[in-house]
Amino acid sequence: MANPLAVKIESFLSPLLGEMMAHSTVMIQCKKIGTIADELKPEDLPKLAERIEKALIIFVGSEKARKTAEAIKSLR
C-alpha cells in the first residue's frame, strides 16, 4: 500500500484492530466504496469513514464508532 492517505488510515487503525486486520479493513472497505487503497483520494474519506464506522460498532458501540469515524475523516 503506497497511497499516503491509506497508510495514514491503516496506521490510525493498527493500535485498535491490530496491524493485519487494519490493513485488510482498509483494503476491503476501499473495495466496498468502489476504489482501491492505492487510489484513495481525500474526497473518498467520508464514504470510507462511514464504512469503517459500521465495522467498529461491534467493538465499542455506535457512539464511539462515530467518534472514531470523525477522527478518520480529519486525517486528510
Binding site: 493500535p15 485498535l16 484492530l17 491490530g18 496491524e19 493485519m20 487494519a22 467498529l56 467493538f59 465499542v60
Partner: peptide
C-alpha cells in the same frame, strides 16, 4: 486471533 494485538481484541 485475527485481531492480533489490537486493543479491541
Amino acid at each position: 486471533a485475527l485481531l492480533g494485538k489490537g486493543v479491541f481484541s
